[in-house]
């Protein structure tokens, strides 16, 4: 308890959060540099971008290790830590695949998602001082949170695929040489990837939300309690469902589908933390 108290008193900003902030700055730099790579049409080997993301990943790792040592346990106990963990797995996966020259271009797309997630994680409300018991100590709570994060991760990856699709589609429409010179996959494959990831996201979100009434019952003694975050999650679930159904039934594919996928994820990233703040169920 004393240790946790000291951790809170030392103001996290100067410790692991400071490192994480620097890592997010790195993701931001990479995101800005990626714009130049886009303009070049991914013709050049984007080694610089890889190195920027490598540096940012190192800072990110230091931030996570410091947090882990400070709280003397695996640093996945609240929304901040879970988000930084998801971001870290994305960047590490990219660094591995980026060892292969042909796959290094993915960094130009991943950097924007990393920046988004990084900024999202830095919202102060996501990292409240640790209680004696971690937020996700309960097995059901952990499962619920994991599934929701997996859903967000799948939606995030579908947004990356959508970004790739829109870039490639724009170049093909406007007869740019870089459309065929770039290393991006065919747009039809990207559309299938988007679809598959959205389906996975919907699946994880559905199962994650399925546990909600049991958690509410455990905490408040009733199965249903009106809550802004719960209403918001149901809205997100329905929105993605409509997106998928309109694609299957009415052939709403292509650019419109990609913009909707990208826009939905941007909406989640920009609003999720706000609804979390408004949610009494998740704040107690």
């Amino acid at each position: 308890m004393d240790r946790l108290y000291n951790y809170n008193a030392s103001v996290t900003w100067f410790t692991d959060r400071h490192f994480f902030l620097l890592a997010v700055v790195g993701y931001g730099l990479s995101s800005a540099y990626s714009v130049f790579l886009w303009r070049k049409g991914f013709r050049k080997d984007d080694r610089v971008n890889y190195l920027i993301l490598l540096a940012a990943a190192l800072l990110h790792t230091v931030a996570m290790v410091k947090r882990g040592f400070t709280i003397a346990q695996c640093p996945v106990n609240n929304l901040y830590e879970a988000t930084t963990f998801i971001t870290w797995t994305i960047v590490v996966a990219y660094l591995f695949f980026g060892l292969f020259r042909k796959l290094r271009f993915v960094g130009a797309f991943a950097s924007h998602v990393l920046l988004f997630l990084g900024v999202f994680a830095l919202m102060p409300a996501l990292d409240p001082p640790h209680a004696a018991k971690p937020d996700f100590a309960n097995g059901l709570v952990s499962l619920h949170a994991t599934l929701i994060f997996l859903a967000i991760g799948a939606f995030g990856l579908s947004a990356v695929a959508a970004l790739m699709f829109l870039t490639e589609e724009h170049d093909l429409k406007f007869h740019k040489l870089r459309a065929i010179f770039s290393l991006l996959p065919p747009i039809q494959r990207l559309e299938r990837v988007m679809n598959g990831l959205l389906l996975s996201g919907i699946f994880f979100l559905t199962v994650g939300l399925f546990f909600s009434p049991f958690l509410v019952k455990e905490k408040f003694g009733v199965y249903f309690k009106s809550d802004p975050l719960l209403d918001y999650s149901i809205f997100i679930w329905m929105f993605y469902l409509v997106l998928l159904v309109s694609r299957w039934k009415f052939g709403q594919g292509g650019r419109r589908f990609a913009w909707s996928t990208l826009g939905s994820f941007a909406f989640i990233i920009l609003t999720f933390w706000g609804f979390l703040l408004l949610s009494p169920v998740h704040r107690q």
Partner: peptide, 23 residues
């Protein structure tokens, strides 16, 4: 180098375009 990259005939450019659109 990029000396062998890309197509320099109309027919092969059309094929490359098709490969960038269809999986």
């Amino acid at each position: 180098t990029n000396i062998q990259r890309g197509s320099v005939s109309v027919a092969s450019v059309a094929v490359e375009l098709a490969q960038k659109i269809f999986s």
